[in-house]
Amino acid sequence: MSLTLEQVRRVAHLARIEISDAEAQSTLGHLTGIFALIEEMQAVDTAGITPMAHAQDLAQRLREDRVTETDQRAAFQAVAPETEGGLYLVPQVIE
């Protein structure tokens, strides 16, 4: 499987990464290399093996349902570019 330049641009857009034509071109080269590696791994017969969701064979640890956090708004908002009435302000989102 080989990647197209268009796919590289699309993935970059989805991730909101701005790339120049030259960068897209070199990224395509890098990613194609990775895909080649994946293709090599595809050759291994994995029939009957349950896919792993995590590299470690452990179970999720659970927390008791207790409120342990206190209000840190002032500290967090001290480093926010703009706030008003306790809200974070961001460039308008047009629906």
Binding site: E69, Q72, R73, G86, L87
Partner: peptide, 27 residues
Amino acid sequence: ATQSKIFSGSSTAFGAEPNVQASAVDI
């Protein structure tokens, strides 16, 4: 209907002042 959030210890109570129930994990 939990007291705290799904991945943090912030309160889920409705109607609080903006962002006072948003911890480092939530933001």
